[in-house]
Write a protein that binds this DNA or RNA. Structure first.
Lengths: 337, 337
DNA sequence: CATGATGTCTACATCGTTGCAGAGCCCTAC
DNA sequence: GTAGGGCTCTGCAACGATGTAGACATCATG
């Protein structure tokens, strides 16, 4: 099973281990004659460097870990793609773990037996774990947080402005002349910080127009899945006075809501306009196509990776970076009459 | 940056390195008194074992790599999720890499400088690389191939029966009384083996009913994406005699096709029925919801991981395993009148 | 009291690689 | 002639952990 080592090659070529290493890495000067002799043996034995040993010696692995709640949520899949691409540009590979939003699993990541020490750095998109816990359990591995929660300066953090994003989406709906704009996705409890920020933006947009928020139109959901979006929409449709527009806290909720509306014979956008957040590709091909607030995933990924690598290399400026990436509203059929 | 090592703990507790190691691992007997003294120092210094060193010593990393063409293709994202879950059950973590279907990238994976040696095994879902190349470049790491290509016994291989799956989908459409059933997704060139198998099944279903295949209804696509499905559908609709049903080689193509049909004012399924393959969650919430051939992704993932771990542990039965996982047709709105 | 079994703990070698210091050798220059 | 400087090449130590063997007490046994 185990392949040949530098020693095996060295013995066979009658040179020192160090010289073989030099040939492999092209480091120190090796005469052409010797180089080709060693190379021949390397080829013959099909030598492959043992990266674990190399890593131990060099104190780094060239791997970063990306931790997301659910990989089959398109937003995270698309983000993962960008992260992998961004990391590759710097010679890094990415290990992906998913927590299923399970707090225990997120904690285990940082605990004593975690594999975190195997990575040069961590990109974390935590759903449930709080900033306080992170601080207490934080290990020596550099961490960059992605897109969720409020961490007021304890960690590097990359995210879009959730309040502004929600405001823009809601303002768009109000600007269409809709008067009963619902919100699907609030999470008014400890770990739902992203959702809470979006609710703030939703209210802000109403306040700026001097409009009241009808509280029965704000529907919480435990998660951001299609099914929960459909269920929430069903409940809204059952109201005595149903909404004429819905701001969903992500695209999956929105697609579920559209599905519920279509099934109920309600026209989108004529009767109810729908906006989501995330700009997943699916929204481009749905019927109707989905208006959404698009964070720049590519910028998020590149920024996060760059920030993490700076931290790893110690070239980071002091203090925790708080980076806000731009977002923009993309209007499609679900709101365009 | 670097944390305390066993040596640091040992010095501080006035014991040997080995004893600290024993306390950490609970191996050899250590007296209660000494154990708690060492444990106190471990806690005080917040010792975390260096997994790289441990891995070097033990010759394994507890990591496997999953290589897929595109992570943001829902099928692969959902599969990745299952693989991560299956691996975790065995104490393994999963590194995910994506090749973008790029042959060079796939080759680099197996080449001299690949990081493959850092993993105990590889799960490979190759798009372009051929079996021959794999054999020639194969390194010492155990490999299990997923779902694509024909490898006639050179490697462990897990996949559904593509011919039967395509047959079932096509037969379903023909069974609805449709007479012009199109096929979207053929890839009649070297590396499109999965597509070719599906074309065989498509033809087989026609042959069994004694029906001819109208060749203009078989539309190739370079990849299996929504956009290409929509474009292919547009071309089919432009035919003098358009189809009344479409078998798409995966769900994304099907969703793109449905989008094109809806945009053209063609009713699904009344005018054109649509079937896909993969059973991605998106198809459950599309309008109309999507009839599809569902491979059991969970079984695929578990089987692949089990097979790989057997190979890693040397407990594999001799020879390359060729495992066929079951599939079933799930009828939804896109074909159910 | 000698013997051996048992229970704790330690020293050393080792995994495969790279950093470092220096050993030879040849050549030039004074 | 020999000192000095480049080239090549080598040996040793180290990264941080674990496997193995054995040292050293303690204790029961004959």
């Amino acid at each position: 099973m185990a392949g040949p080592t530098l020693r095996d090659v060295a013995r066979r070529a009658n040179v020192s281990i160090r010289t073989v290493s030099n040939v492999v890495n092209g480091y120190a000067p090796v005469s052409d004659e010797l180089r080709s002799r060693v190379q021949a043996v390397l080829d013959e034995l099909e030598y492959r460097p043992n990266l674990i040993a190399r890593n131990l010696r060099q104190g780094r692995t060239g791997m970063i870990a990306l931790v997301v709640p659910e990989l089959d949520v398109p937003y995270f899949a698309e983000l993962a793609r960008e992260v992998i691409t961004a990391a590759r540009a710097h010679g890094y590979v990415v290990m992906i773990d998913q927590t299923d939003g399970d707090a225990e699993h997120e904690r285990a990541l940082l605990g004593r037996d975690s594999r975190a020490t195997m990575f040069d750095g961590l990109l974390l998109s935590p759903l449930t774990i709080s900033a306080k816990e992170l601080r207490e359990r934080g290990n020596r591995v550099p961490i960059v947080l992605l897109g969720e929660h409020i961490y007021n300066g304890s960690f590097h953090h990359v995210a879009m402005d959730n309040v502004a994003a929600a405001h823009d989406a809601t303002a768009h709906l109000l600007g269409l002349g809709r008067t009963r704009v619902a919100a699907i996705g609030d999470q008014p409890y400890a770990t739902g910080e992203t959702a809470q920020l979006r609710t703030i933006g939703y209210r802000q947009a109403h306040a700026r127009r001097g409009l009241p928020v009808a509280e029965e139109l704000v529907v919480p959901t435990a998660r951001f899945h299609r099914r929960l979006g459909a269920e929430a929409m069903d409940r809204l449709l059952a109201l005595p006075e149903p909404p004429d527009a819905v701001f969903c806290y992500n695209d999956l909720l929105a697609l579920g809501a559209i599905r519920a509306l279509t099934r109920a014979g309600v026209r989108v956008p004529e009767d109810v306009a729908v906006v989501g957040v995330d700009d997943i590709e699916e929204g481009l091909y749905s019927t109707p196509s989905l208006t959404t607030v698009a964070p720049d995933k590519s910028v998020i990924a590149r920024t996060a990776v760059d920030t993490l690598l700076s931290a790893i290399n110690g070239t980071a400026s002091s203090g925790a970076a708080e980076i806000v990436v731009p977002h923009r509203l993309i209007v499609r059929e679900s709101t365009a009459g």
